[in-house]
Design a protein around this nucleic acid. Structure first.
Lengths: 338, 338
DNA sequence: CTGAAAGCGCTTACAG
DNA sequence: CTGAAAGCGCTTACAG
């Protein structure tokens, strides 16, 4: 067996009886190439099943044709959360329409997001970056902004020139809280994600606004924050039961957390939808089909992802900056808040 | 503003007063470099925040440090299915322990998996490939095998030299069917995925074996196959109700499909767990928390992913071939089959 | 222990 | 319309 040798443009050139430059030109569809030689070269390429070396090409043209996806450091949470896979799915769908491949960050525990972003960029691995979430003071965003590198954000961030696609989370939380209030509830707890995430802050805002509007005073004691999982929901559910008087409504940042609350209430014999109303976010499969079907906001995560990819491609190709896209949400009302 | 110029090993060399070769050597931790120059160079690198260009490096050493993940063409199914995101999560976790990045295929509708595999390889984009599922006659696998390219498979495939990690799906289906039979059921339907997938074939085998063992004749009419979603579950659920006599047990390939069946039965007033037993695969969140909690097999998708990544790294670094890893499954028995 | 040079496989300005 | 040559930014055998 001959020593392995990658077949290169030179091989094609030789077979077609032209120069490598010409081969390169037919690959990039240069219009100056004559039809005759184009055909010759194409035939040779096919015959050798030639495919241009992406690294050499990237090196020469200083573009990679790949886009980096930054999974938040707290990826575990995001992964058990359908939001993440849904938006990734949207991103993939968006990418299929372009010619970009997707490079996924594999955060080691210690590495912060910004390290990965910098690595991707400085190593020239990607032409653009999608951020799947935003913190209040986001070092990654600041860095990208400072070097004017193409990126788009799933989420919101105040600042100039940031491409972002998001729901109106303030409005969604406002409406959801309003809905619970209309269940004739007066004391409404809020289970929310990490408060250094922009999304949490906005939802808190909407919640406050709804309360204020009906003259209910905001009570910090009713706000619980933490990461997204079932256990934390159960834990807070128990806690809420022990309050005196017990809250009669809860707005929850994620269905999985709400499921945990539901379980706590079941164990403590509290009737959801009767003694207390629960409304949540993400409209996951299990919101619809849980023992007590959950009222939930559909944030259209797949569309968030798809749009963010599309926006990023514009940012790379057209230099788009500072475009803000709003993805509508929709509240599905179910038994947990009737 | 000065024309943008990537900072290169040459810049570092100049600042440190050495040659680019030396810079390259300290990057690759070449032991022959003296401590003194190593320190000098490191300092210069830090100062310039230098990061080696990945494309140039890949081109020179003919390695990319990235691994390609092939999402099945029917990705939509896989994405709405927690199995997919769970295993991807495992892969990412596995990758964090190595130094590999992950490149995700973004299948356009028309492109077959094999096209993407070939593109990744011929373009030298990846050092290895993870296949997330296997068909009976898998062109992708055959291709990879034929050129002896490092890959690992989540799933099973008969053939030499294939690294694979999988559950014992025959056994799992056998046990699950056995469990339903022990519910004192006699006529058991099987809702299974596409029959050209290896996993489906194996599960069918296990199902048959369990029936055979208790002397129940296999009836092809009781086997329904299709893609994984809720609607198809509902559809088959209705169909099953109309059979005469109606089956009294169902083994389902995925919880989401089972949820659809559950819904159909609810609408038709059939008592699950009483009139009929249902047992399913994947042990998703919604299996546990659905109105009628579902008996389900936990296949440990995250571990499948993690192990496949680990195995692939061995395949790349050590040349491992033909290693087969079994990931244990576990059946969780719940009300749907009591 | 370190440097000069060639090579990895493309692309593109320049010349014709 | 096409080719020779230089360059993208690394690495490594060779020489010292």
């Amino acid at each position: 067996m001959k020593k392995k040798h990658n077949i290169t443009a030179e091989d094609v050139a030789k077979l077609a009886g032209v120069s490598p430059s010409t081969v390169s030109r037919v690959i990039s569809n240069n219009p100056k190439i004559s039809e005759a030689t184009r055909v010759k070269v194409l035939k040779a390429m096919k015959k050798l099943s030639y495919y241009p070396n992406a690294n050499a090409r990237s090196l020469a043209i200083q573009k990679t044709g790949t886009v980096g996806i930054i999974i938040p450091t707290t990826s575990e949470d995001y992964f058990s959360n359908p939001f993440f896979s849904e938006s990734l799915r949207g991103i993939i769908r968006g990418a299929s329409n372009s010619d970009y491949d997707l490079l996924i960050s594999t955060n080691t525990e210690k590495d912060e997001e910004i390290k990965i972003i910098q690595k991707f960029i400085r190593a020239s691995k990607v032409d653009g970056i999608i951020l799947m979430t935003s913190k209040i003071e986001d070092r990654g965003i600041k860095f990208l902004q400072s070097i004017d590198f193409p990126f788009s954000l799933i989420g919101s961030y105040s600042g100039k020139n940031i491409n972002q696609v998001d729901n109106d989370n303030t409005l969604a939380a406002y409406e959801l809280t309003q809905h619970v209030l209309q269940n004739n509830r007066k004391k409404i707890a809020l289970l929310i994600g990490d408060l250094d995430l922009v999304v949490s802050k906005r939802r808190l805002l909407g919640y406050k606004k709804a309360l204020e509007e009906v003259g209910i005073e905001f009570d910090e004691e009713l706000v619980f924050s933490g990461s997204f999982d079932e256990e934390i929901g159960y834990y807070y559910g128990e806690k809420i039961c022990k309050m005196n008087p017990m809250p009669d409504g809860i707005v929850v940042a994620d269905d999985l957390v709400a499921i945990g609350v539901l379980n706590a209430f079941e164990d403590l014999d509290i009737k959801v939808g009767v003694d207390i109303s629960i409304a949540s976010f993400n409209n996951s499969v299990f919101a619809k089909y849980s023992k007590t079907p959950l009222t939930s906001v559909d944030i259209n995560a797949a569309e968030l992802g798809r749009a963010s990819m599309e926006l990023l491609v514009d940012a790379i190709d057209e230099g788009t900056r500072g475009k803000v896209i709003n993805i509508p949400h929709k509240i599905y009302i179910r038994e947990s808040s009737k």
